[in-house]
């Protein structure tokens, strides 16, 4: 059974007013439990709106979203839904609420009424999962962006979600911070079986996903394995998206008459191709 199901979902901002914006248009989508899904689209494509529909932060204008079969419109189940679908946002500075790391991580389970012993266990577990155990008594404010985002993930983990939604969580990080966060997300997916939905601008982050969904103008326009999606580089360009840098280079070489396989997505594959040709 899919863990999240969207049936003909549309969402309109300022519905009924002059400046209404149809951000998501008639999207039907199933997310399988345990999968690692990347969702890309340029600014304004509707991807962040879609993310907020997944745990009831926004409710569809029409259609339905369900998590483990529970409709997000059922307000009495909203805690259950939010417990299952945790979200990490873009700005690392906006997601910390306590001045000590362990208090910050404990905030979620405290709100859910989890008992003290269990909270302590969860805080330790969550910090270990994101590789931040030694900072338990530290303060988040002095940390790097990558560390803060890992703490934000730990805060979400402490509520024991089955789905982790990263809404452009690496956009404000430097390359090292980005790698740290992606590493943590991959480990949680592999080791804990947590379903990950990574909403991103970075095509190279989409490479490691099982499935790549591309949005444009509120609709899903491509939904396939990353390499099959990247093969459509002309189309991606037309909707203001890029392919990974290595693929882009191969495409430019091919355009200039070098008979290279443009399906390469990693540096290693490119080097192998070039060795064959040069």
């Amino acid at each position: 059974m899919p863990i999240i199901q969207l049936q003909n979902v549309s969402y309109t901002y300022n519905a009924g007013s002059r400046d209404k914006v149809e951000a998501v248009k008639d999207v039907t989508l199933q997310i399988e439990e345990g999968s690692f899904v990347a969702l890309v689209g340029h600014n304004g494509s509707g991807k962040s709106t879609l993310a907020k529909l997944l745990n009831g932060l926004l409710l569809p204008t029409s259609g339905s979203v369900s998590v483990y079969g529970i409709d997000t419109k059922r307000s009495e189940s909203i805690y259950e839904i939010r417990k299952n679908v945790g979200m990490v946002f873009q700005n690392p500075d906006n997601q910390m609420i306590a001045s000590i790391v362990e208090d910050d991580i404990a905030f979620g389970p405290e709100n859910l009424g989890v008992e003290r012993e269990e909270i302590i266990r969860r805080v330790d577990w969550a910090l270990e999962k994101v590789g931040m155990s030694e900072h338990k008594k530290g303060t988040p404010f002095k940390m790097s962006g990558g560390q803060k985002q890992r703490l934000a993930i730990a805060g979400v983990l402490a509520i024991k979600p089955r789905v982790l939604v990263l809404d452009e969580s690496t956009a404000m990080l430097d390359p090292r911070g980005r790698r740290e966060v992606m590493q943590v997300a991959k480990e949680l997916n592999r080791q804990e079986g947590i379903t990950v939905i990574n909403i991103t601008h970075y095509m190279d982050e989409a490479l490691g996903a099982d499935r790549l969904i591309v949005m444009n103008e509120g609709k899903i326009v491509l939904d396939d394995t990353p390499s099959k999606v990247f093969a459509q580089h002309e189309y991606l360009k037309s909707i203001k998206l890029s392919v990974p840098p290595v693929t882009a280079l191969a495409v430019r070489l091919a355009e200039q008459g070098v008979p290279i396989d443009t399906a390469v997505t990693t540096k290693e594959e490119l080097v192998e191709e070039l060795c064959r040709l040069l």
């Binding site: 340029h42 600014n43 956009a171 601008h201 203001k240």
Partner: peptide, 8 residues
């Protein structure tokens, strides 16, 4: 260019 999508 931090935080912008590829087109931006």
């Amino acid at each position: 260019s931090a935080g912008l999508d590829p087109y931006g």
